[in-house]
């Protein structure tokens, strides 16, 4: 081991006084940092004013939260992918594939009235594994064949959907009664859980993602690759290996989301979650994720998912037609990115 480098303090230039850009702009910066949160708050307050009291009842609150679960969990995986500068368009198809895999495995236990705990767990793990394989294939193809993830995942979107239809013989697959179906109940069993088990799982996964992104070397590599892949390579990061790890790890989240989707549907449905990947990407983008990589957070993305759920729920209560909701959500996506631009402008 060579001695540690000792550099005497520089003497050539006296240190300049700290340049601060002034109070007003630093306040602005803090405000913009929490922009997604304020967005959620203002959307919520808006509906509290407009909607009948039923909107801010505890029961409706539970409904909104439960409706966020699937998009929220999948958005955690997507957050990591988007921070690394990638994208995954195949998430919706993967979720459908997952539900079909669950149903198929549950039916293997024979035509019983209720599936055993063992086979239920196996079914959930099977769905997660199926998604993990998709993620691994995406990572492998993008890094080894050097094809942009947009194209690869566009392909996998078709492939996973096709495989789901093939396994499910192009129809929904009914299943025996099992415990997975209880994951998304508004009134959970046991009662003291208050929220559906899926909600608690979501909270755990959000915390997990936040911790992985901030406190692990893997998380740091995700940011580094997304911010500047060349720098990452220069710093000795094995970029293609890390890429594969990112897509595989993220697909585990998609797998869990597919379990929740199954719980909602109680059947395996190869046509489920069509177009959901766009909701998931929108959640990440509303939450401050940048499609050019290097930016995004778990908290931001879950807030993004909540904003969309509150909007849908509130609009439904007001009797706003579906097409208007779509217009509003579109405007919010663009607005979120505009705020993001503003944030960069102030930083620069």
């Amino acid at each position: 081991m060579t001695p540690k480098v000792e550099i005497p303090p520089a003497t050539v230039m006296p240190p300049l006084p700290n340049k601060s850009k002034g109070e007003s702009s630093s306040v602005k910066k803090v405000l913009l940092q929490f922009a997604p949160f304020f967005g959620l708050l203002s959307v919520f307050i808006l509906f509290v004013i407009l909607c009948p009291p039923a909107f801010y009842s505890f029961y409706n609150f539970k409904t909104i939260i439960t409706q966020t679960v699937i998009v929220g969990i999948a958005a955690m995986g997507m957050t990591m992918i988007i921070i690394s500068g990638g994208i995954d368009l195949s998430v919706g198809s993967q979720i459908a594939l997952g539900t079909v895999v669950i149903a198929t495995i549950l039916n293997m236990g024979g035509p019983g009235v209720e599936a055993s705990t063992g086979i239920t767990i196996l079914a959930a793990l099977g769905a997660i594994a199926a998604c993990a394989v998709c993620g691994w294939l995406i990572g492998l193809t993008t890094s080894r064949l050097n094809i942009v993830p947009f194209i690869v995942t566009l392909g996998v979107m078709q492939i996973a959907r096709g495989v789901a239809k093939w396994i499910g013989k192009e129809q929904t697959v009914s299943t025996p009664v099992n415990n997975l179906q209880k994951l998304m109940l508004l009134d959970p069993e046991p009662e003291w859980l208050i929220f559906a088990p899926g909600v608690w799982i979501t909270i755990l996964l959000v915390a997990l993602t936040a911790v992985v992104l901030k406190y692990t070397v893997f998380g740091r590599y995700i940011f580094a690759i997304g911010s500047n892949e060349k720098t990452a390579r220069l710093c000795g990061i094995n970029v293609s290996l890390t890429r594969m790890a990112i897509y595989t790890f993220s697909a585990l989240f998609t797998g869990v989301a597919s379990v929740m989707q199954y719980s909602n549907l109680t059947v395996g449905d190869p046509t489920a979650a069509a177009g959901m990947e766009l909701d998931i990407i929108a959640a990440v983008v509303i939450g401050g994720g940048s499609l050019s990589g290097g930016e995004g957070s778990a908290m931001g993305s879950i807030i993004g998912a909540l904003i969309m759920a509150v909007l849908r729920n509130g609009c439904n209560m007001l009797g706003v037609p579906n097409f208007v909701q779509e217009v509003i959500i579109g405007v919010i996506i663009i607005g979120a990115v505009a705020i993001d631009r503003l944030k960069h402008h102030i930083k620069a």
Partner: peptide, 9 residues
Amino acid sequence: KEEGLAVNL
């Protein structure tokens, strides 16, 4: 800028 540093980190 292009390789040496991840400028937005």
